Amino acid sequence: MATERLVLRRFRAADAVPLAAYRSDPAVARYQSWDAPFPIGKAETAVRNFAAGSPDQPGWFQYAIELTASRELIGDVAVRLHDNHKQAEIGFTLATPYQGKGFATEAVSAVLDRLFRLQGLHRVMGECDARNTPSAALMARLGFTREGLLRQQTFIKGEWTDDLLFGILAPEWLARETVVPA
């Protein structure tokens, strides 16, 4: 998949070093399930697992986000396709230097477009730590509806955290005026 500035593609072995680098940033890891630093061995295993997945089969698939101009890996978009092939969960991670520049919006939009237009999904949901205001704002900007707050839902990194739940339905996404090119 390609957008104006990005290529969203399958992970490959060479991605282990940049994956370890951005996942080792404490600011990037703050609201994620992994701890920083993220060792290279763990990144190599992750990249192998990501590369083995399929975006069309139930389970997790991780898209690598690459800058078109420099071919640099700057983040990833994760999709967990449900067994019914009609619902999915989405998550996203972007290296700190590329946050706040519209790259996450561009990447997630392209993935949502694929999910709704090409794969025919009915619903996509997202969940984030309630303190992660940039992620919540991104989902709202893309048309997700905040559907709930799960108080002290997750025990992670030594603390209980509240989780925000978001969802978007196919008719809501397909009614949008702007279509991200594939």
Rank of each mutant, 00 (worst) to 15 (best):
N132A: 06
R117H: 05
A130Q: 09
M125T: 14
T154M: 08
Q153T: 02
T154H: 07
G126F: 06
E127G: 02
F155K: 10
A136T: 01
Q119F: 11
R123N: 15
R114I: 12
M125P: 07
G148I: 01
R117A: 08
D129P: 00
L149M: 12
L138G: 08
H122P: 01
F155Q: 14
L118F: 09
F144G: 08
L118M: 09
E127Y: 01
H122N: 06
G143M: 09
T145A: 10
E127F: 00
A136P: 03
V124Y: 03
R146H: 07
Q119N: 09
N132C: 09
S135I: 00
A130E: 04
R131T: 06
R131M: 15
A140E: 13
T154I: 12
C128A: 06
G148M: 04
M139T: 08
T145L: 05
L149S: 01
G126M: 06
F155I: 13
R151A: 04
A137V: 09
E147K: 12
G143K: 11
G148D: 02
Q119L: 11
N132V: 04
R114L: 14
Q152V: 07
H122W: 05
R117C: 10
H122I: 00
Q119H: 12
R131Q: 13
L142A: 07
H122G: 04
E147V: 11
N132P: 14
T145K: 11
M125C: 14
T154L: 15
T133G: 06
L118A: 15
A140H: 03
L138R: 05
M125I: 05
P134I: 06
A136H: 00
F116N: 06
F155N: 11
F144N: 07
T145F: 02
M139G: 04
T154F: 03
F155H: 14
A140V: 13
E127C: 00
Q119G: 07
S135K: 00
Q119D: 14
S135G: 00
R146V: 04
R151D: 13
V124H: 01
F144D: 05
T145C: 11
R117G: 01
P134G: 10
R146A: 06
H122L: 06
G143A: 08
R151W: 03
H122D: 07
L150P: 04
R141A: 13
R146N: 04
A140W: 02
A137Y: 04
A130N: 12
M139Q: 10
R131A: 15
L142K: 02
R146L: 09
L149K: 00
P134C: 11
L118I: 12
Q153R: 10
N132R: 04
Q119P: 08
C128L: 05
M139R: 04
G120Q: 13
E127R: 00
R123T: 15
L115A: 05
Q153S: 12
R151L: 10
R151F: 06
R146P: 08
S135L: 00
A137C: 08
L115C: 12
T133D: 13
V124L: 06
L138W: 11
G126T: 09
V124N: 03
M139N: 01
L121P: 05
R131K: 15
Q153N: 14
A140Q: 10
M125R: 15
N132L: 09
P134K: 02
L138N: 12
L138H: 10
H122A: 07
L150T: 05
L118G: 09
L121D: 08
A130Y: 02
R123A: 07
L149A: 03
F116A: 04
R131L: 15
S135D: 00
G143F: 06
L118P: 05
Q153E: 14
Q152S: 14
